[in-house]
Simulated assay, not measured.
Amino acid sequence: MGKKQKFDGLSEDYDQYRPRYPEEFFRKIAAEISAFPEVTVVDAGAGTGIALEGLRPALGEAVGYLAVDVSEDMVDRGREKFPDVRWTVGAAEPFIEGLDAPVQLVMAAQAYQWMDRPRFVTACVAALAPGGLLAVMQNNRDYTLSAFLDAYETLLELHSPGYTRRYRDFDVAGELASGFDPTGGHVGVSVLTWRRRVDVADFVRMAASSTQVRRAADQEGVGFLDRVRELCEAHARDGRLEIAYRSELFLGHRG
């Protein structure tokens, strides 16, 4: 049996309760690669295929999809949703390094922070066809706009070992540029802010699907979820929370 991964055992709640990505991002990706007569996509750190839900309608039918994730649990769920996608259990970096033909798009949605980032960028630059695209996409809870989210982040920082709300505060655009600029390419950035209304019970289930909450629960017991629920109920209106998001899309264009 393989080594247990971060999201093993979380796939059902992860797939059902995680926020989806802005459709505008997928339209932008589709426009950027529209000149290719044939397209092969690699979804790196694909999870259960949440990003594929938005990408596939935007790209249309004549596209081949490869998806890789370290969690067998997540991949099993992804296969159920998208049986025509070629799924692989494993790390993204060696998978991309081992591709036997150029691809037109690599996508990393909510996964880039988990990777060996310099190795991943180098592998993507080598694997992409000229004019190809690396799309790094992430939904970030915007705790600067919400007293609830600020309090939730503080709760995690106090009880989840090693967690900080700034765990994605690094220069994604600069890291991509270090790989793509030498090819004669460039990096583009798009940002959208939006809000999502969520029932308290659904937010707690979403929280339970996160590694940060799992670490806190491993340390303090399942009662930690009661803390999360109490915090949600203190900030909810009519049983619902308004969650502010800052979504980011970084596009590395290969020259």
Results as ranks from 00 to 15, higher is better:
Tyr163Leu: 04
Glu153Val: 10
Gly179Trp: 10
Leu156Asp: 02
Glu157Tyr: 09
Leu192Cys: 11
Gly185Phe: 12
Gly188Cys: 13
Met137Phe: 05
Asp199Pro: 11
Trp194Cys: 11
Leu176Asp: 06
His159Pro: 02
Gln138Asn: 15
Leu155Gln: 06
His186Val: 07
Phe170Arg: 03
Asn139Ile: 04
Ser146Asn: 09
Leu192His: 10
Ala135Met: 12
Thr164Met: 00
Gly188Pro: 00
Gly162Arg: 01
Ser190Lys: 09
Pro161Trp: 00
Val191Pro: 10
Glu157Pro: 06
Pro161Phe: 02
Met137Leu: 15
Asp171Met: 12
Tyr167Asp: 01
His159Ala: 01
Ser190Thr: 14
Gly185Cys: 11
Thr183Asp: 06
Tyr163Cys: 06
Val191Leu: 10
Asp169Cys: 11
Leu149Cys: 04
Glu157Asp: 07
Gly179Pro: 07
Arg165Cys: 08
Arg195Gly: 08
Pro161Glu: 00
Arg166Cys: 01
Val198Gln: 08
Asp199Tyr: 05
Val189Phe: 08
Gly131Val: 01
Tyr143Cys: 05
Thr154Ile: 08
Asp150Asn: 08
Asp150Leu: 12
Asn140Met: 10
Val187Pro: 04
Ser160Ala: 15
Phe180Cys: 05
Gln138Lys: 02
Asp142Tyr: 10
Phe180Leu: 10
Asn140Cys: 13
Leu176Val: 01
Val172Ala: 13
Tyr167Ala: 02
Met137Tyr: 05
Gly184Asp: 07
Glu157Met: 09
Ala129Leu: 06
Gly174Ile: 12
Thr154Ser: 14
Leu176Ala: 03
Leu133Cys: 11
Ser146Ile: 00
Gly179Cys: 06
Pro182Trp: 09
Met137Thr: 03
Gly179Asn: 08
Asn140Leu: 13
Ala173Trp: 02
Phe170Tyr: 12
Asp169Ser: 13
Leu156Val: 08
Tyr143Ser: 02
Thr154Lys: 13
Arg166Lys: 10
Val172Glu: 15
